[in-house]
């Protein structure tokens, strides 16, 4: 079949669909490559650099991010080499310096035999994988949050650090956050996220809070649902 290509990962001969990435091919073959900023539902981004691998193609060896690099005929991939491990170890140490408590990071660090970060701890919590921003844009279709500033001072933020006008309080950003940096709370029929309070809709039958009004409005609008679609909660239906 012409839409398949042959490659090797760690010496194993594999076949993968053309246009897929090394990370996908490795996953399909149960070969472990650590990664943080990748999610199958999102477009490849290549920012965390944890998933780097060493490839040899057309007599050239180099380090690439497996989450973006597309498979090619005759591609040879090594997922564990000294250079690869050095990059991963550095990355995990650097990320731990931003968030030493995260279990996800600690687990990866353990696999890489990194005990602790040698770098000055400047606890911010967020590791800037961008999953929240990309999920909000690509999956929810809202684009309520983004980056502010650049380089080391970069942060995920709402526009002008103010109440996010487009946020529907769906909480997807918190859901995808690998280090649980983004959090929200619910109290007395109000969901609080991004420093903003969002009133929640009550079930007209049982009185339980279903979801933020803005989130339900967004669903009704994008899915063309009738105005009263969410008046009754799932339990009362």
């Amino acid at each position: 079949m012409s839409d398949k290509v042959n490659l090797t990962i760690d010496g194993r001969k594999l076949e993968a669909p053309a246009g897929s990435t090394i990370l996908q091919a490795a996953k399909d073959a149960n070969i472990y490559i650590p990664h943080l900023c990748h999610n199958d539902e999102l477009k490849p981004y290549g920012a965390c650099r944890l998933c780097v691998v060493e490839i040899t193609h057309r007599n050239r060896t180099r380090i690439v991010a497996s989450c973006i690099y597309e498979v090619a005929e005759g591609l040879e991939v090594q997922t564990v080499t000294e250079r690869v491990l050095n990059v991963r170890k550095l990355v995990i140490e650097l990320l731990l310096s931003r968030n030493k408590k995260s279990q996800v990071l600690q687990d990866i660090a353990q696999k890489l035999e990194v005990e602790k970060s040698r770098f000055e701890l400047d606890i911010k919590g967020c590791i800037l994988c961008g999953m929240c921003i990309r999920t909000c844009k690509e999956v929810v279709g809202v684009n309520a949050i983004g980056y502010k500033s650049r380089g080391f001072t970069r942060e995920v933020a709402t526009p002008f650090d103010e109440t996010p006008p487009d946020c529907i309080a769906c909480g997807s950003c918190a859901y995808v956050c690998p280090v649980d940096f983004i959090q929200y709370s619910e109290k007395n029929g109000v969901r609080t996220i991004w420093n903003t309070e969002f009133p929640m809709q009550k079930c007209t039958k049982c009185g339980r809070h279903i979801a933020p009004v803005k989130q339900l409005d967004h669903f009704k609008e994008t899915l063309n649902l009738p105005e009263d679609h969410f008046d009754i909660c799932l339990h009362c239906r």
Binding site: A47, C48, V91, L94, F119, I127, L128, Y147, R150, R154
Partner: peptide, 8 residues
Amino acid sequence: GKCTPCRE
């Protein structure tokens, strides 16, 4: 600030 090695 996109990728970890450069940013951090």
